[in-house]
Amino acid sequence: MEKTYNNKAWFLVLPVLVLVAFSAVIPLMTVVNYSVQDTFGNNVFFWAGTEWFEQVLTSSRFHGALIRSLSFSLVILAIQIPLGIFVALNMPRKGIGVPICLVLMALPLLIPWNVVGTIWQVFGRGDIGLLGYTLRTLGISYNYATDPWHAWITVVVMDVWHWTSLVVLLCYAGLVSIPDAYYQAAKIDGASRWSVFRYIQLPKMNRVLLIAVLLRFMDSFMIYTEPFVVTGGGPGSATNFLSIDLVKMAIGQFDLGPAAAMSIVYFLIILALSWVFYTVMTNYDTANR
């Protein structure tokens, strides 16, 4: 659509600006403020320069949390994206099955995040949880509270359970928007199932897939509530992801300076990666127009 140039449009955007300024800009300024100051309490602050940033960027605790968060996001993407595509490809296209699948699959997305944590906390327990009990009966030792690997697997499976449906729904929406003629033409051309996927479905899903990757990356990189409820960051610091560490530091220990510096570094990482995605996406959009 051809858009007209009109700076009065700013008036329409104004309410959003005011609101977002109140709920984002001012808090962010506070964070920046803390990150360059130090305090001994009593609301007396003095200039600390880049001290906190140096401390955060060189601390092994931050490195550990960063590596854990990044690996978690990568594992999550590696599982959820292919699984989501696979499920979406096999969803029914019409009939009574469609709303049933959609409603049931969307259900985990609408469960409060700490309840998700609670559900899995219970589900994985060896004494009262179905999963833990079954594994124990099968003779597999499994305890997410003591074994770091088990804790990791539990958190990953939980996230797969919680969020794969988002990928499924996105891909499904991409798939149903492909006109029937494409499938008919492919049939006439004698295309195999794989060819249909490779040359019709995948190219048409490209855009929604990018969005799925972007959303899943951002949200898994920011994950807090669910693993906090299940493992509390433990055992040891096995599941101490960036957000968990940050909240521990800021609200638990009240180390405002380092916490603020860490917040900013954290935010900048997400921003940089998201900017890359956004650029790729918009370039892709214009290339297709």
């Binding site: 959003v16 977002v20 984002a24 001012i26 808090p27 962010l28 506070t30 964070v31 951002m218 990189f221 920011m222 807090y224 960036l242 957000s243 968990i244 940050l246 909240v247 800021a250 609200i251 405002l256 916490a259 603020a260 917040s263 900013i264 954290y266 935010f267 997400i270 921003l271 998201s274 956004y278």
Partner: peptide, 15 residues
């Protein structure tokens, strides 16, 4: 605006 969707709530909790 979109960056705000990307901001980790943990960063904003204390402020």
């Amino acid at each position: 605006l979109l960056t705000n969707r990307m901001a980790p709530p943990a960063v904003f909790a204390l402020p």
